[in-house]
């Protein structure tokens, strides 16, 4: 049974998955929740056979870590905990915020529009369509290293954009120590 296979690999590598979660800044309690969440998914959802189960599990964990961190930041906004740290928090409405607002969306669109065509295409293929770099190289008729450089430049612009427009998330965070120990 492939499910039994992935379950066994999860159990054998649970410590490493947990280490990844902690390294991503997830608190210990929350990391255990994520592990439980993964176990439930593995047990119940009959995940089909995958080529490299460990890689699959690690990707699942890192994606869940990102989701958790973003949810945590939203919670922080909601609970007004942020107001005590940053006066900016007063501008944040009570209800749960979307990660991205309409004006940010417009700015993001403008950023994408300002990118060279190939860069934009590579980024969309990579991030939105989930294509491999090899596939992107084939589609765009470029070398693999060319695609890699293009994507790296695109992400650099994206991060700079995010730094310039911290927008709805409390971008200037509390200390890292705060994050790893949060939640209780």
């Amino acid at each position: 049974m492939p499910e039994a296979g992935i379950a066994a690999i999860f159990l054998a590598n649970r410590a490493m998955v947990r280490r990844l979660l902690l390294a991503r800044g997830i608190g210990a309690d929350e990391a255990d929740e994520v592990l439980q969440d993964m176990w439930v998914r593995i047990e119940q959802s009959r995940i089909g056979p995958v080529a490299d189960p460990l890689s699959y599990l690690m990707r699942m964990a890192t994606n869940l870590a990102t989701d958790r961190r973003i949810a945590g930041q939203r919670r922080l906004v909601r609970e007004d905990a942020w107001t005590s740290l940053q006066p900016v928090g007063h501008e944040v409405p009570d209800q749960e915020r979307r990660l991205i607002s309409a004006s940010e969306l417009a700015r993001l669109e403008a950023l994408l529009a300002s990118m060279p065509v190939h860069m934009r295409q590579a980024l969309v293929l990579f991030r939105v369509e989930g294509r491999s770099q090899r596939a992107i190289a084939d589609i765009l008729g470029m070398s693999l290293s060319g695609v890699e450089k293009l994507l790296a430049r695109a992400y650099r612009q994206l991060v700079e954009f995010r730094n310039d427009h911290p927008a709805s998330l409390p971008e200037r965070r509390a200390t890292p120590g705060d994050r790893s120990k949060s939640n209780g």
């Binding site: 991503r24 800044g25 961190r69 973003i70 990660l99 969306l105 993001l108 991030r127 991060v159």
Partner: peptide
């Protein structure tokens, strides 16, 4: 984490656009 967040923004923006 800054990068992961920027990446998540792009991911969330795609359907919302």
């Amino acid at each position: 984490e800054r990068l992961a967040e920027a990446d998540a923004v792009l991911g969330e923006a795609a359907p919302a656009l």
